[in-house]
């Protein structure tokens, strides 16, 4: 066990545990936008900055991202100093100037007293804050259809060469995990369009309700060996099937 202090509270951390996870476990609030527990931390949004110091550092302290800084013996962490709040506000000003319509960014900015950023607002700016959750989710947990492309101001999330991806299965994980709802998709129950690719949505073989895309079960069956027939029935009809099977056995 590693012993350290967060906001004056003595806590114990597991070896290799990051400060953000530790703080959340102890009920200390640190705002984040790019953190998702399903994937490795990336330090992309810079909102979780905290100030760390040690007794033997002779008064020196540094700002680090809590999501990527591992707990160390004797560390003194402050999450609410003036330096931390100033940095956090600065990051929010930049994010709000880039994505003025993103609800998650606006809410956090409002909580920190920012309604109009001091930087030039990009009125045409999309909601994407390049937090990298979608690309991390897709590349480590699904099929790796999207990535960050280009550098600098042209950086964006896209499929290779902006073409319809041949590995995307249309599971919508990227769009649904996006904290700012920046990934557009269309789903009318028959067709689903995301990243420029249109998928057929399989209708439930009993009631006709939309289930998943045709490619989704193929990918899952290949990966985990799950029985493929179960995918063509919606959850409500599967309940009916279970009831019917039970009735057949009992009566």
């Amino acid at each position: 066990m590693i012993r350290l202090t967060i906001d004056g509270k003595r806590v114990e951390a597991r070896n290799g545990e990051f400060l953000l996870a530790l703080a959340r476990r102890e009920g200390i609030e640190i705002p984040t936008l790019c953190h998702h527990e399903a994937v490795e931390p990336a330090g992309a949004c810079r909102l979780c900055m905290v100030e760390v110091t040690k007794a033997q550092w002779n008064g020196f302290s540094k700002l680090v991202t809590a999501c990527l800084y591992p707990a160390e013996e004797g560390l003194v962490v402050r999450t609410d100093t003036e330096r931390v709040m100033k940095t956090r506000r600065e990051v929010l000003e930049l994010l709000l100037a880039r994505s003025p319509r993103a609800e998650a960014v606006r809410r956090l900015a409002r909580q920190h007293g920012i309604t109009v950023p001091k930087y030039n607002v990009d009125e045409e700016g999309d909601n994407c804050i390049l937090c990298d959750i979608c690309t991390r989710v897709c590349s480590t947990l699904v099929t790796g259809a999207i990535a960050r492309v280009n550098r600098g101001v042209a950086k964006k999330v896209a499929t290779p060469f902006d073409e319809a991806s041949d590995v995307c299965v249309g599971c919508l994980s990227c769009a649904r995990s996006c904290p700012t709802e920046a990934i557009a998709f269309l789903d009318d129950g028959l067709k689903r369009t995301i990243w420029g690719k249109t998928f057929d949505v399989v209708a439930c073989s009993v009631c006709g309700a939309p289930t998943v895309t045709k490619e989704h079960p193929l990918w899952m069956a290949q990966r985990k060996g799950v029985v493929e027939e179960d995918f063509h029935v919606c959850d409500a009809c599967k309940v009916g099937k279970t009831g019917q099977a039970c009735r057949k056995v009992m009566w």
């Binding site: 998702h36 527990e37 399903a38 989710v137 947990l141 699904v142 599971c171 919508l172 994980s173 649904r176 995990s177 289930t211 998943v212 989704h216 079960p217 899952m220 799950v226 029985v227 179960d230 995918f231 029935v233 959850d235 409500a236 009809c237 599967k238 309940v239 009916g240 099937k241 279970t242």
Partner: peptide, 19 residues
């Protein structure tokens, strides 16, 4: 907090208990 909402579990449950 770990869920990526891909709905794979809903499709995979043979009994309809994952809703």
């Amino acid at each position: 907090s770990r869920c990526i909402r891909c709905s794979s579990c809903v499709a995979a449950c043979p009994f309809g208990n994952m809703r």
